[in-house]
């Protein structure tokens, strides 16, 4: 197959228009990067805000948002290509299967079967008892 026809076909294979110039490429990618950096810094800052158990939830939520941005804009999931969406979505569903059932077990396991060396369930720091080294 000749190069010319392949170039034509490569253009056709994209749902989103492929940027052809340096300017267009940068204009499309830089804002995404700025948002990503902003999210990363926000996540770092928010981690110092005492929110109890919500700290980790917020951090992971921001991580998921970053994943979504990278997936949509850098990994071209915006392309209306069913194959890519299939592959890109399947793993999420399957990780969901794994997580849902593992946590279902852990959340409902008999109290006796929880580990013996169990610390406080709450996210509060351990009370500083005399003689214990702090962290």
């Amino acid at each position: 197959m000749s190069g010319r026809s392949s170039r034509r076909s490569s253009k056709r294979s994209l749902g989103e228009a492929t940027p052809r110039s340096a300017g267009a490429i940068l204009a499309r990618s830089l804002p995404v990067w700025l948002v990503l950096v902003g999210l990363a810094l926000a996540s770092c800052a928010l981690a110092y805000l005492p929110m109890g158990r919500w700290n980790m939830a917020v951090s992971l939520g921001i991580a998921a948002a970053k994943m979504l941005l990278i997936g949509l804009f850098f990994m071209h999931l915006r392309r209306p290509d069913p194959l890519l969406r299939l592959a890109g979505g399947a793993w999420l569903l399957w990780v969901g299967f794994l997580a849902a059932l593992v946590f279902a077990d852990q959340a409902t396991r008999a109290p006796l079967t929880q580990p013996e060396h169990m610390e406080d369930r709450t996210m509060e720091p351990p009370e500083t008892a005399g003689g214990r080294s702090g962290f």
């Binding site: 013996e116 060396h117 406080d120």
Partner: peptide, 28 residues
């Protein structure tokens, strides 16, 4: 026995009413 065991290893988990949580954990 499970309660006694927990109370020795992790005394701060289930504190008996009316007592200060002063006992050190014996886990480990």
């Amino acid at each position: 026995e499970a309660y006694l065991r927990d109370s020795i290893l992790q005394p701060r988990r289930d504190i008996a009413a009316g007592y200060e949580p002063v006992m050190p954990p014996f886990a480990g």
